[in-house]
């Protein structure tokens, strides 16, 4: 069963200029994106910076209001609700069922609150009694591997990795049905990244978390996700189960992302050149396939007709005209 179903989610930001603030253009940050997250599953949303993955995450949590589309969320009781049109007030009872892990562990914790109060805040605002809160905070600290004394300290007394653990504890406080993790490890050192990834894996096992994991690095995603969705300039270009996708990417962009994952072996120099050029401007998307200016396999068709996302192999969706003809290298 799906915890979350996103259908044709679109978010446009108007560009305004001039004295009258007329709309002169639109940034198509997210353009008709559809995917789902099954219960107990982790879906990774991957792409370069600026591809719209964080916007997707914020729309789902309704920190942003989507321009159009549906965000169907299965509530604890099994009732399905579309979050997209809901008002701030109507959202409040649902908010507790979906929580976020933030990218920057320094900005996401209020520096003026004790760690215990930070973790207890979701409990407090949702009316959990004080005694239960105390017990729950201790339980959560243990769950994320922090000592009990941590609750009477301020965030500045902790390292980045420890702060991220605090952020995770806060996200888990209300036993949410869905966790949206927005690049939870990209602000951390590599060694600390591994610890946080291990913690997330451990929590997936123990709590059967359903998670949308946003990342720009396929290397990290490989360990945590069951399925992967790759985004490019506001659109999903490929989805598939993690192992299959890593073995054989079907979209040239996925292949390029994989080639850019650093390999911890100095003798292995890659023959494939890194991706040239920049991500296309979301306010001025190239005609045809948005990836064609950077694609080594682009043909005339790619410049004219925009490829739609379609099932190219059972269980795999790809938005590429040449998905079937190309044989692209995966990882290892």
């Amino acid at each position: 069963m799906n915890v979350l179903e996103v259908e044709s989610l679109t978010k446009h930001f108007p560009i305004r200029a001039g004295l009258l603030q007329r709309e002169v253009g639109r940034i198509r940050a997210v353009d008709r994106v559809s995917f789902h997250v099954a219960r107990g599953e982790t879906l990774a949303l991957v792409g370069e910076s600026g591809c719209g993955k964080t916007t997707v995450a914020r729309c789902i949590l309704r920190a942003l209001a989507p321009t159009s589309g549906a965000i169907r969320f299965t509530q604890e009781g099994g009732e399905i609700v579309d979050l997209a049109p809901l008002s701030r007030r109507a959202l409040r009872p649902i908010r507790r069922q979906m929580q976020m892990i933030f990218q920057d562990p320094y900005a996401s914790l209020n520096p003026r609150m004790l760690v215990g109060d930070i973790i207890a805040e979701p409990l407090l605002v949702n009316g959990v009694p004080a005694a239960t809160r105390q017990a729950r905070v201790l339980e959560l600290l243990e769950l994320v591997g922090l000592p009990a004394v941590a609750r009477s300290r301020f965030p500045f007394a902790f390292s980045g990795g420890q702060r991220q653990r605090i952020g995770i504890a806060r996200a888990l406080a209300l036993n949410p049905s869905l966790i949206v993790a927005d690049e939870p490890v990209s602000a951390l050192d590599v060694s600390v990244q591994a610890q946080i990834i291990n913690l997330l894996l451990d929590l997936q096992d123990r709590l059967r978390l359903s998670m949308l994991f946003v990342a720009h690095d396929l290397g990290v995603v490989r360990h945590v996700s069951d399925r992967v969705a790759v985004m490019y300039v506001g659109r999903i270009v490929e989805t598939g189960p993690t192992t299959a996708l890593y073995d054989r990417p079907l979209h040239p962009y996925t292949a390029a992302l994989m080639a850019s994952v650093p390999k911890p072996d100095p003798d292995r120099r890659d023959a494939t050149p890194p991706l040239a050029g920049d991500v296309a401007d979301a306010a001025n998307i190239p005609p045809g396939c948005a990836f064609h200016p950077r694609c080594p396999h682009a043909v005339a068709r790619c410049r004219e007709i925009r490829p739609e996302l379609r099932e190219t192999i059972p269980g795999r969706m790809t938005a590429c005209h040449r998905a079937e003809e190309l044989t692209l290298a995966g990882v290892d």
């Binding site: 949590l61 920190a63 409040r92 009872p93 908010r95 507790r96 979906m98 929580q99 976020m100 933030f102 990218q103 920057d104 900005a107 996401s108 914790l109 209020n110 520096p111 003026r112 609150m113 805040e121 979701p122 605002v125 949702n126 952020g167 806060r170 209300l174």
Partner: peptide, 26 residues
């Protein structure tokens, strides 16, 4: 736009709590 303010909002905190507990002290 601060993450910790958004975090409080996502946790379901009301506007008064966000203003007086998170924004004003900052």
């Amino acid at each position: 736009e601060e993450d910790f303010v958004i975090a409080a909002e996502l946790a379901g905190a009301g506007q008064m709590r966000i203003i007086f507990r998170h924004m004003l002290p900052s």
